[in-house]
Simulated assay, not measured.
Amino acid sequence: MKKLFFLLIILLNFSGLEAQTLNDYKYIIIPESFEFSKEKNQYQLNSLLKFLFEREGFETLMNRETRPEDLQRDNCLGLDADVIEDSGLFTTRMRITLEDCRGNLIFSSEEGTSREKEYKRAWHEALRQAFESVEALNYNYEADASPEAPSVPETPEVVVVGQVPVDTLQAENSTSELAEEPEVIVQSEKISKGIQPQTLYFEKDGSFFQLEENENGYSLFQKGMSEPFALLIRSEEGGSFIYNSVTKQGIATFSENGDLVVEHFDASKGASVKTIYKVKND
């Protein structure tokens, strides 16, 4: 009985440690495909995982995207996400894992399961169920507690008394323009070119919506809402977007006149369904 009691105490302490340490990380890095996948973003599972993490307040990026400046300086700000599948004949099982920059396992979710026969529905249901373990942590990034990358010792400055170092002579011989060049802060391409991210406005069935551009595509808001209800993730092919909402996954495109067209498969109807958001130009 005592052994069982101490085991419970250890497990409870470990759970608390998970919740604490996960708050230390700013970014979640999503792979383009999982080990059990046959193609990139199969059944939009990778996009769904990205959407779920963003909904919980994490900053996410695909593993081949250009990394933000702070993540380039310190890759230990990010966690590598993965999905582990252990499915049987009639049940799909999935777990979500997160590893730090040193390959240490920081988090492993509860197992999500589904008995759906259709692969896409089964994968999405199992992943969403596994993600409930992440939701339970109530993530809130704590910048001051971020893990530090291994420090790299700085090269000491060599000063020779009564002698001018060669590097100094070379620097003085270089043009003064280079010496006086101000520090350049790298910003996003749109901002550096003076172009502000787009906000587009739409109407559907008497309701109003807005589409706000971000680094990966767009966020779709209903008027008056502070949180987006769907994400449009730019596809590699260009011209189309992967549409992810809480209840639907599909493809989004813009028509010739600027309308937003969302197409998804409705299993209850056994057919593809289109939703059109009419662009508002005024």
Rank of each mutant, 00 (worst) to 15 (best):
77 L>M: 03
1 M>K: 15
230 A>W: 02
64 R>L: 03
122 A>I: 00
18 E>T: 13
128 R>V: 10
10 I>S: 08
59 E>N: 15
173 N>R: 06
132 E>N: 10
278 K>N: 00
201 Y>P: 13
183 E>Y: 11
177 E>M: 08
86 D>I: 03
240 S>P: 02
218 Y>C: 02
100 D>K: 03
247 T>L: 10
45 L>Y: 09
44 Q>S: 14
272 S>L: 03
274 K>V: 09
88 G>T: 05
122 A>D: 01
173 N>A: 02
96 I>D: 04
22 L>W: 05
22 L>S: 02
172 E>H: 07
229 F>S: 01
129 Q>S: 06
123 W>P: 07
21 T>C: 10
199 T>W: 00
103 G>F: 13
235 S>D: 09
132 E>L: 15
65 E>S: 09
251 I>Q: 13
242 I>C: 02
108 S>V: 07
111 E>V: 06
69 E>S: 14
68 P>A: 12
220 L>V: 12
47 S>V: 05
202 F>V: 05
231 L>C: 02
24 D>T: 08
48 L>G: 01
144 D>V: 06
232 L>R: 01
272 S>K: 13
214 N>K: 05
15 S>H: 08
153 P>G: 08
279 V>F: 11
235 S>T: 04
228 P>D: 07
109 S>I: 10
158 V>K: 07
282 D>M: 10
241 F>T: 02
101 C>D: 06
149 A>K: 14
50 K>C: 02
176 S>G: 01
116 E>I: 00
137 L>G: 07
199 T>V: 10
168 T>C: 04
167 D>E: 11
187 Q>C: 02
177 E>P: 01
51 F>H: 09
211 L>D: 04
147 P>K: 07
181 E>D: 02
202 F>I: 01
212 E>P: 06
130 A>I: 09
29 I>H: 01
249 Q>F: 11
139 Y>M: 12
224 G>V: 10
232 L>Y: 04
270 G>F: 06
174 S>C: 04
3 K>Y: 01
214 N>Q: 04
196 Q>H: 01
22 L>H: 11
113 T>P: 00
102 R>Q: 00
216 N>S: 04
164 V>T: 14
78 G>A: 14
142 E>V: 05
182 P>V: 11
111 E>D: 08
253 T>G: 03
183 E>S: 15
160 V>Q: 13
25 Y>P: 08
124 H>F: 09
259 D>K: 12
202 F>Q: 14
90 F>K: 07
24 D>M: 14
11 L>T: 08
256 E>V: 00
191 I>F: 10
106 I>W: 09
99 E>S: 11
165 P>V: 08
112 G>T: 09
184 V>L: 09
189 E>I: 00
174 S>Y: 03
149 A>H: 00
94 M>K: 15
135 E>V: 14
163 Q>V: 15
130 A>V: 06
88 G>N: 05
156 P>T: 07
79 L>G: 11
33 S>Y: 10
122 A>G: 05
141 Y>G: 15
